[in-house]
Design a protein around this nucleic acid. Sequence first.
DNA 1: CTAGCTCAGTTGGTTAGAGCAGCTGACTCT
DNA 2: AGAGTCAGCTGCTCTAACCAACTGAGCTAG
Lengths: 238, 238
Amino acid sequence: MRTAGYALAMAARDLQERIKKLIVDRRLPSGAPLPTEPELMRLLGASRNSVREALKALQAMGIVEIRHGFGTYVGPMSFAPMIEGLAFRTVAGHYRGEDSLLQLLELREAVETGLVSRLAGRLPEADLAELDALVDRMEREAAEGGGLAETDRAFHATLYRGLDNVLLGEVLEAFWDAFHRVRCDLAATPQDPRVTCRQHREILDAVRSGDSLRAERAIREHFGNLRARLSHTPTAAS
Amino acid sequence: MRTAGYALAMAARDLQERIKKLIVDRRLPSGAPLPTEPELMRLLGASRNSVREALKALQAMGIVEIRHGFGTYVGPMSFAPMIEGLAFRTVAGHYRGEDSLLQLLELREAVETGLVSRLAGRLPEADLAELDALVDRMEREAAEGGGLAETDRAFHATLYRGLDNVLLGEVLEAFWDAFHRVRCDLAATPQDPRVTCRQHREILDAVRSGDSLRAERAIREHFGNLRARLSHTPTAAS
DNA sequence: CTAGCTCAGTTGGTTAGAGCAGCTGACTCT
DNA sequence: AGAGTCAGCTGCTCTAACCAACTGAGCTAG
């Protein structure tokens, strides 16, 4: 008979759960300090090692943030871990000969086309002005030959901020990040910056005009361009 | 001067990276066995504990899968960890008085409305038949008064399978899972099953007819119903 | 008195070694 | 040949010690 000793085992499995419960129960907001490791050992009745493993896992999920010599804190609840996971999944798939990067691009395209149509004509003037400024900056950067990745990212982020849904914006940013991380790692086929600028300008104009079909078409063309570039890169190199 | 000793420190930080690199370099597919803990210690030149912490973090990201007494394997690259993180984020936000659950619902609505319109009229007959069967089953379950969560999930999963993008399907499923996990935990306000059935039938009919606007409207109504129910639930209970 | 340093105390990071627990497969006894 | 057992792999947990990053009190030099 080995039926006894269940409560003692499975410690780590719900250590994570208990720490999460602690955060929820105490209504700890992002950035709030968590108990120190020794305190958690006492609170949860586990060894330092187990506590640390649980914290590491929670950190990987973005739920807590660990700062060496400082303390452990409730995480920013960002999607950084999702980006990590998505990026790795894509890289691994790519090296195994799958078209994972293309799938990631299609995911972005599908979501953004769906969103931009409902955005058309509903963006406040302030946001439109900000987007104008971003495209201007992009054109300047393109003329100077520099990279415009950051501005590109800012454009997309600002565009979907109008949806008034923080979660949505973050998910989109996560997709963007994952895609560009992988893209830079694998296929360094930078697109002509001037084309990118023109497409962004067209997206912005379409949204401003309130023509949702035109906006959708603009987004689709933008992604179509990227997609074409991607298809030319054979699956696995190395 | 404390400039020296960099290579030795930060061990754990890139232990994860090195394990990931190992997976990519060896082209290990999902399910492939990883080196055992002692082997990893030797390979990476780190202690058992550090190796384990790195593995725990990777497990939390879904990159590896650890089976007690059996071994460590390359993970299924599923979105289970994302679901976990999303669900926790939503629960925590909810208890802090945010409308995080509503935001999650809106995320699903935004994505699904965007997708269903491109799906309309492009689904093969086989998939349509399968969806018919699912709605039938749903109606049967509704009549018996049982829960139809699983069938609901299957409906959505089958619907978007037609997009021919595994990643997209998985992300949508992840959103569905996270939403329902939180919904069950917090607001147990089950919707009238017959209404759900009718709405699913309408979505299916709309997609079959190829009328993308109608399909979009059907999805929006489906979600609108859910949203109304959610708004009645005050933010934080206890 | 202030600017800067040092140093002790806090926190997390890493290592080592021992023993526990789940699974497999070969070996033995019936 | 079949069932039970045991040795050996695997990962899991614990203890104890030391390393490294950060903070703040207190001291020293200007």
